[in-house]
Amino acid sequence: MIPFGFSLSPSSVTDLDKVDTRRYRELLRLEPGAATCIGCGSCSATCTSSAWTGMSVRKVILGLQRGRDVEVDAMLRGCMLCGKCTMVCPRGINTRNLILAAMRISKEDGK
């Protein structure tokens, strides 16, 4: 192939019919509040860790809904449990419990 200096990136389309959402459903069992997220992004904006690790509760919830486990796990590893996201969440979601629950259920458990 001729090196053009750029390449095509793989498609980021998620086929929701094919996504395995068992991990997300398990999360909903452990923290039902996850279902009430409106994706406002307050948690991401205030996150202590995001500058270094890209952590964002909003993206964690979204990622689990879409089966993007690798990205989710990388973000979860950066959380410091400081609780700022809980304080600012307009839906009053217990985000720390959500994070701990998501860390408990690994991909293997979800499958």
């Binding site: 690790t53 796990d73 590893r77 959380c79 860390m103 408990r104």
Partner: peptide, 15 residues
């Protein structure tokens, strides 16, 4: 005592 599937990793955190 609780075991987690994912453990924190702050190696990229450099304040």
């Amino acid at each position: 005592r609780r075991r987690y599937a994912i453990d924190p990793d702050y190696s990229t955190v450099r304040p």
